Computed example of a mutant assay.
Amino acid sequence: MPPLIRPATPDELEPLLEMQQHSLRVLGARFYPRDVLEAALAQMGTMDPRLIGDGTYLVAELNGQIAGSAGWTMRPPNYARLLPEPLCALPGRCGVVRSVYVAPEMARCGIARRLMQAVEQRLAAMGAETAELMATLSGVPLYAALGYERVSRHGLKLAEGMELAVERMARPLTPLRAAA
């Protein structure tokens, strides 16, 4: 049974943060040392709660449980200050995919793929020609399989000289056809 993809509600913020933190700790463990993951969670968090208020954050629900989440925005994310160049430096109108997470027990079940499809459809409907994201190393294979290409590699600076290695990735969006 496919998950229900719907907008997140404000009362889901805490359960979303718990799922996201658990996801990063478990799925990121093969790619990052534990101290780097903990520093990233403490200093950057997992999502911008304003996305829920904007109506641009989605939940994938399966059997009444949060199985994943993802969002989008047309404004620069808060981590953009840590990058050497601005996001969406590519030609055309660009949207930023934000905070894609899947509950570890639901990994590799198509949840992230469905969320990405929903996010990309909404970005295209807003006039975005390109979708861009900052991928943790654990997410790079998924995004590459969805047609995203690496734009650049970065190390987001954390306290005590630590860095979170990420890849900036982008792909063109298929224009939506006008309704007949």
Rank of each mutant, 00 (worst) to 15 (best):
I66S: 03
M162G: 06
V140W: 08
L4N: 05
P141G: 04
L146N: 12
R114K: 06
A103S: 14
A29H: 15
G161R: 00
M116D: 12
L123I: 01
T136M: 09
P84G: 02
A67F: 05
K157G: 02
P84K: 01
T9I: 04
N63M: 02
E149C: 06
Q117L: 14
Q21I: 09
E61T: 00
V100E: 00
T130L: 09
R75K: 12
N78Q: 15
R25Y: 04
M19F: 02
G55A: 02
V100S: 00
R75A: 15
L37N: 05
P49G: 02
S23W: 06
E61V: 00
M126V: 00
P15M: 13
T73K: 12
P84Q: 01
G55S: 04
V102P: 08
G155L: 02
V96A: 04
M44P: 02
H22M: 06
Y57G: 05
M134W: 00
R30W: 06
E61Q: 05
Y79P: 01
V151C: 00
R168A: 01
G28Y: 06
M126Y: 01
T9E: 15
E38G: 11
T130F: 00
E149G: 09
R25S: 03
F31C: 13
Q121G: 07
M19R: 10
A159M: 02
Q121N: 13
R177S: 14
S138D: 14
G28C: 09
G110N: 11
A170Q: 07
L24R: 03
A170W: 04
V97Q: 08
A144G: 10
A144Q: 12
V59L: 14
C94F: 08
V166P: 05
V97W: 08
A118C: 10
L87S: 09
R6W: 09
P172K: 05
R50P: 09
L133R: 05
Q117H: 15
P33K: 12
I52S: 11
G64M: 10
P91M: 07
N78L: 15
G53Q: 07
R93P: 03
Q43L: 14
L87E: 15
R75V: 15
E85F: 13
C94G: 13
L27R: 11
P10T: 00
M19A: 06
A42S: 13
M169R: 06
Q121Y: 03
A60S: 06
L17S: 14
A8I: 11
M134A: 04
L13C: 03
E14Y: 11
E167A: 10
V26F: 11
A179F: 03
I52R: 08
S138M: 12
A60N: 07
G55R: 02
V96P: 01
A125H: 04
A40W: 13
C94R: 03
H22N: 07
W72M: 10
I111N: 03
L16H: 07
A103H: 15
S99N: 09
A118W: 08
